[in-house]
Design a protein around this nucleic acid. Structure first.
Lengths: 85, 85
DNA sequence: GGCGATTTGTACGTATGTATT
DNA sequence: CAATACATACGTACAAATCGC
């Protein structure tokens, strides 16, 4: 990111960056791991978490513990069934 | 500071003091925390805030919440012309 | 079922600026 | 000038869920 030229809060910049990557079709299904994104953008894990929560609240992505984060529009119909038994 | 022999407003004195430290090369990148500066100069936190705003408006420093305050020329790629190619 | 690898979830602590009283 | 609460950011450690073997 660029905490100096961009006056916006870091987590907002990250959120917008990821949002753009989805919009541009660069990310169509599964997002990189949160910690990977943190490293990629050079920010703290907790900061990425905050960004993700924002996108999650916007309904853009869907997150599942142990699984990962996915583009909501790409997963809407196929919520994996847990039909174990 | 010295609000007695110096008629200038305290925040102006602090601003000039910090400005001088940057000019003199004593501070080249990150400034001390606002609270630390307040203690160092023996003035109120609010006073330092006012001084910082002044230097900020002058474009001398750049402040970011959660990060700190930095010398603008040091974080904005001050030396452009690479006269390359 | 166990194990390890991967990934998200949670909880602290510390530093720093922001805003209000 | 003092005090207080709040917001942002970094770092770390451990818990929980999932998956492949």
């Amino acid at each position: 990111m660029d905490p100096f030229r961009n006056p916006k809060a870091t987590y907002l910049q990250v959120a917008e960056a990821i949002s753009a990557r989805i919009r541009d079709g660069e990310i169509t299904y599964k997002l990189p791991a949160e910690r990977a994104l943190a490293a990629e953008y050079g920010v703290a894990y907790q900061t990425v978490r905050r960004s993700m929560k924002l996108l999650r609240d916007q309904g853009l992505i869907i997150t599942r513990q142990g699984r990962g984060t996915f583009v909501a529009s790409a997963v809407l119909g196929d919520e994996p069934d847990k039909t174990d038994s």
